[in-house]
Amino acid sequence: MIPPRLPPDPPNSGRLHPDRWIRILPEGVYVEPGGFYVDPVRPVERAVITHGHSDHARPGHDKVLATPGTLAIMRERLGEGAGAGRQPLAYGETIRIGDVTVRLVPAGHVLGSAQVVIEHGGSRIVLSGDYKRTHDRTCAPFEPVPCDVFVTEATFGLPVFRHPPDLGEIAKLLHSLRVFPERSHVVGVYALGKCQRLITLLRAAGYDRPVYLHGALMPICDLYRAQGVELGELRPATVAAKEDLKGAVVLAPPSAIADRWARRLADPVTAMASGWMRVRQRARQRGVELPLVISDHADWDELVQTLDDVGAPEVWVTHGREEALVHHATGRGIRARALALVGFEEEGA
């Protein structure tokens, strides 16, 4: 579908429409009067980063502004690539960059994740990055900010995507552990966010045994703990005896669950925690035996609810299934268009 063309600004509104001062360049979303990009996909001079996932927080920028949590994650994941100048900005604080003011507001996606609230010329635009509305013990909850233009993702922008209650999904995992007490339960999780959320959900469901981790998952867990997130006892799976892994929960990156790494496990039940698990064929393609529909992205109902909550008369959709959300918004009398940004993957879905 062709996105509706934006009508010109109403004359004499007295406000400068963000369309006039935000540009979509090959590097990403450019805030011209501030001289910075938000989540640029190529190295730039000044970048504001919404959160630490690798498709949003890329290496090689000169100056980076982000929440302290996101900066810590970038340092852990990117090392020197995290940016020469790193400026922390706490949630709720406002700073002025060039001709605009910038404020970071919790997005509820992963630890440190933020929406970027930018004001200029009497208008306010909110770039929400990736977000969800479901309660998550590992990060501050999403706060809706009323605005003139709301920029949203649409990873799960189809009405077939409805994430069921997360503790219900954890109950499925615990049930399987009871039915197959002799089998390791290996759960594919993204290293940043999903891994730690899954652990806190297990703990909230009363599971207090050690959780075993693939080596790639440990550093971010340590970082979360240092930021005050309780994760209980974690052990490295790589050095554990095969016997200990029987009936244990083992977390690993999705790429490892059906590959050589998983051969060390005792007759594993292959599980995967992702919003994509909602669609059976997706789960089967990945060889998943126990799909857990747990996502760090807004589902369809949350996307729709969020449009209502922020009350923006105009919505820009960055990535995902843009056309459906644009269609829905247009039907609700909201001006909407797809930005067709490239370079955003489905990490952390």
Partner: peptide, 24 residues
């Protein structure tokens, strides 16, 4: 029950009628 356009895109994505209807 649902917007036919959204249903159509969803069906294209899921690829199975029973599953699309069940989810949507």
């Amino acid at each position: 029950r649902v917007d036919p356009v959204l249903f159509g895109w969803s069906y294209d994505y899921v690829g199975d009628l029973a599953e699309t209807v069940a989810l949507i």
